Computed example of a mutant assay.
Amino acid sequence: MLRASITKNRILCGTSSTTRLSGTALRHVRLYSNDDISNPSSLAKSSNLPKIEQQLLKKPARQPKKKSPFLSSHAIENDPNYKMNSFLQSFGQSLIKIFNIDMDKSRAGPIAGSKYYGECKKQALYYPNEPLSESAKFYYETLNLPQSFSQWFQITALHYWILSVRMRALPFKYYRAYQQKLVDRFFRDMELRMSEEMGISSNRIIEGYLKEFNTQLLGSVLSYDEGLMTDDITLAAALWRNIFNGNPNADMRHIEALLGHVRQQLYVLNKMSDRQFGFGDFKFVEPNEVVKPLTKAQEVELRAAVKRNYENMDLPSQRSVLSLNE
């Protein structure tokens, strides 16, 4: 029954794309946010199984005591409308041109270490007495997962892995740069959150937590990779162990819904060119969304539209050797 159920979900949700590939894709892909096709959130809510709370801790999980800036207090990162003055822009463009700087490698920091990490971080981010985002509601309310720092880490690690799958398809030196920037920022941010938000003052305790989280990250990536290379049952088992904490009372429909949600992200990334991904043109599909798969003709038209978007990028800072075809 589990195999049949998951296979069905893969057809409905796993072979889907998203309009966020590019603005030009909007006319190619129909976005579903209702029950035309069961989206992961609706699929999980359709379960009639009783909720059985899992007692993982003997005492309540430590909760954030304060809220720090989402990424940092740096103006460039914290203000989406920040714009460098014209003199600094011209000076920077000149330096790039004179020294022939590899912008694809330089772009790894602001794209992977900032934008893509922000995408991962916000999926399950929560603060006491603040409303949850739609994605956070999916995990904490729909899937009935506990609100804790370790649970946030596991969900963030899952999204890190999803991005890392696409990064591996980049040319090797760029894959390593993007992956390293993303994982470095992940652990640096956890360190700051534990000290600033969770109120842990001991560096020794924080270091111990970071080592444990690093071990968990390596284990989860290995298990997800095994599922990616084998079948949905293996990937579902990895999600059950890591995201659902191996809960023997976990709702099978919830695991099925999360599996479909993950497969959606992987499909979207698979349809993106290296150039699009390297420039940060990706956002995770929301759990309450499903998109209709692209036809071959639509894929060809989408590629052409994307090329038109990038063909006018002729500034030194916009240079790239990443492919627009794959």
Rank of each mutant, 00 (worst) to 15 (best):
M84Q: 10
S86A: 12
F87R: 09
Q89C: 09
Q89P: 00
Q89W: 06
S90I: 10
S90F: 13
F91S: 13
F91G: 00
S94Y: 14
L95P: 04
L95Q: 09
I96G: 02
I96M: 09
K97Q: 13
K97E: 13
I98D: 05
N100W: 08
I101H: 02
I101K: 02
D102K: 01
K105D: 08
K105V: 12
S106T: 10
R107M: 13
R107Y: 08
A108C: 08
A108Q: 04
G109N: 14
P110N: 11
P110M: 09
I111H: 03
A112M: 10
A112T: 05
G113F: 06
G113P: 03
G113W: 02
S114T: 14
S114D: 12
K115D: 11
Y116H: 08
Y116V: 04
Y117M: 03
Y117N: 03
G118D: 04
G118F: 09
E119W: 04
C120I: 02
C120Q: 02
C120V: 06
C120H: 04
K121D: 07
Q123R: 15
A124S: 13
Y126C: 09
Y127T: 02
N129D: 15
E130D: 11
P131K: 11
P131Q: 10
L132I: 14
E134S: 15
E134L: 15
E134G: 06
E134A: 15
S135C: 07
S135K: 00
A136H: 04
A136S: 14
A136Q: 05
K137V: 12
F138A: 06
F138P: 01
E141I: 11
E141D: 13
T142R: 00
L143I: 05
L143A: 02
N144Y: 10
L145C: 03
P146F: 07
P146R: 00
P146G: 01
S150W: 10
W152K: 06
I155S: 03
A157L: 08
A157S: 15
L158R: 08
Y160A: 08
Y160S: 10
Y160D: 09
Y160C: 14
I162R: 01
I162A: 04
L163Q: 07
S164P: 00
V165S: 05
V165K: 03
R166Y: 02
R166E: 03
R166S: 12
M167A: 06
M167V: 05
R168M: 12
A169T: 14
A169I: 07
L170V: 08
P171H: 07
K173F: 07
R176H: 14
A177C: 07
A177S: 13
A177D: 11
Q180G: 11
Q180R: 14
K181H: 13
K181A: 10
D184A: 10
F187M: 05
D189E: 12
M190E: 02
E191Y: 11
E191V: 01
E197D: 12
M198C: 01
M198P: 00
I200Y: 06
I200W: 03
S202K: 05
